[in-house]
């Protein structure tokens, strides 16, 4: 296991994720153009047909499974363009990925954020 994989809840954007997620992230990238955002909004499934996406990539988008997008090779700076298209913030997406309601996540941040203690290593987190 690489030392980066020992860090819990973290999906480092390395060569494998870039390779597996290339088409997916380039689909996300297309959403920086207003006309593409509009086309995506009007028919998400057929808009995505322009890229060769895996089933899990397509499903994660259609269900707005933000953590699933990352696990399927998405990079947060690219998947955030789907959030932007939805009018959502980074904080909304971060809360969803960490599995808590946005208000609870916001309170955690106001109280100083998620502590590093207990979150350094998978061994420590267990």
């Amino acid at each position: 296991m690489s030392e980066f994989e020992d860090i819990p809840g973290t999906y480092l954007f390395d060569k494998d994720r870039c390779h597996d997620g290339y088409q997916f992230n380039m689909f996300c990238m297309s959403l920086v153009k207003p006309k593409n955002r509009q086309a995506f909004r009007s028919d998400e499934a057929s808009y995505m047909d322009k890229w060769s996406l895996t089933e899990s990539q397509r499903r994660s988008v259609l269900e707005r499974d933000w953590l699933g997008m990352i696990k399927a090779g998405g990079n947060i700076y690219y998947t955030s363009k789907i959030a932007a298209t939805d009018g959502r913030s980074f904080q909304f997406v971060a809360a969803a990925m960490s599995g808590v309601p946005e208000e609870e996540y916001r309170s955690m941040m106001m109280a100083g954020g998620r502590p590093v203690e207990g979150n350094r290593s998978k061994r420590e987190a267990d």
Binding site: G9, Y11, I76, A94, M97, S98, M109, G112, G113, P115
Partner: peptide, 10 residues
């Protein structure tokens, strides 16, 4: 940290 279950780490 912006991604994963560990998002929000400070």
């Amino acid at each position: 940290q912006l991604h994963g279950e560990r998002a929000g780490l400070i």
